[in-house]
Nucleic acid binder design. Structure first.
Lengths: 225, 225
DNA sequence: TCAGAGCATTTTGTATACAAAATACGAAAC
DNA sequence: GTTTCGTATTTTGTATACAAAATGCTCTGA
């Protein structure tokens, strides 16, 4: 067997520290464990994570580029505050791109509709626990776009959903309310079953818009803007 | 005057090296000076740029995240090859987002239409020189979205246009052909003047699709895929 | 009491150092 | 002549070092 065959797919996965650190930090940001208080102390955080400043900074620069952190020259990084203005930018991009992805996945195979229905039932069972519900909701949306061949589009959507998750997680934690989508998902499934793409798109947009309509006033009230 | 007033906007602009390096590298990649040959040697490139490996790597990680470079663990960075499959992912996202941005800018003020007309004339004058024409074309599109309040959307569009510019630059350099948009721009301007958003959107999509239709077969032929 | 200047300390941004992995090279075996 | 193994060299990924800038603190003068 030639050596080239191995080069195609390395046998073991070598994960750079920066990726692990990125995953950890993003998780903490989304869950609100790393709050947008003052600035982030690199030395402190790097020792807490058990790595040097180099991979930490690499990870933080990445998160900055994605909009989870802000970097001020000479003053380092800080978690980006939750702002109504930001939410009002993020959500429209999200429903636009998810709509485009659904269009690119059309028509959905019947098996997909069954999977969506199952996922929606699992979501329904998890409504009591906010963070679980959020994860199940996300699974439903991921399933919706599972057939989309545009990888770049999907990765952009994933990034935006991380942002949305941060906002919704904070909202649920802070207000105690749970944003529920079960009924809307069912309506979307019905539209899909009927082959009515335009209606599915409109409902999908409405689905996100409902979340945004919860967030807006709440963000205005807490006013971390 | 309190000190806080100065903190709001630092008097002088401190630009980190990584940003400068990023700008330089992106320029070289878009213009094709940094070709997707073998891997990038960090030591070599850092001495050529006169900086250490640290800011260079920071810049390259950023460009990787944006899709201009690819990073293989243990084997470093290389310029991402031009692929038909990638172009077919990039352009649809671009016209989707630019459409959304135009929608968000609607209705355009009459002054904007005049500016667009001027920009289009400047484009017409520059058709002889490919790279200048590309820059003018880009100015026209920037003007089109000048009224869009969604900053995040605009920055995503800018990033995608850098990708598109790389493909079109390579196409023009390699094939000698110039993709011309003057007529299409005029049609879009007419639709805008008539207040026909839907038609403007359709024409905008067509505008990008024409570029993609030039690129596809050419990419297939050169087959760097 | 409080504002502001000057110095000490911390923190960032960049450069360098170092270990491990990848590549290149060459000799030996077939 | 080709392949394979072992070693030398290069290159990356991460850690550490260092200079400059930012921050905090103390003391002074009103």
């Amino acid at each position: 067997m030639s050596r080239a065959a191995y080069q195609v797919r390395p046998p073991i996965t070598r994960t750079p520290l920066r990726s692990e650190v990125r995953r950890l930090l993003l998780g903490e940001i989304v869950r609100g464990d790393l709050a947008p208080s003052e600035g982030i102390n690199e030395a402190e955080l790097s020792t807490r994570l058990g790595v040097s400043r180099t991979p930490l900074r690499e990870a933080m620069l990445g998160l900055t580029q994605e909009g989870f952190l802000t970097a001020t020259p000479g003053r380092g990084f800080s978690v980006r505050a939750l702002r109504r203005s930001d939410a009002e930018e993020i959500y429209p991009i999200l429903w636009t791109l998810e709509g485009a992805a659904l269009r690119a996945s059309w028509p959905l195979p019947p098996s997909r509709v069954r999977q969506l229905d199952q996922a929606n039932r699992r979501l329904e069972e998890a409504l009591a626990e906010a963070s679980v519900a959020l994860a199940r909701d996300r699974e439903w949306h991921a399933l919706l776009l599972a057939g989309c061949p545009n990888r770049m589009l999907l990765s952009m959507i994933e990034n935006l959903k991380d942002h949305a998750a941060r906002y919704e997680e904070a909202f649920m934690r802070n207000s105690g309310q749970v944003i529920t989508s079960v009924t809307q998902h069912r309506e979307i499934q019905t539209a899909i079953r009927r082959g009515d793409l335009e209606r599915a798109l409109a409902l999908l947009e409405k689905n996100w818009r409902v979340s945004l309509d919860f967030l807006g006033p709440w963000l205005e009230a807490t006013a971390s803007s």
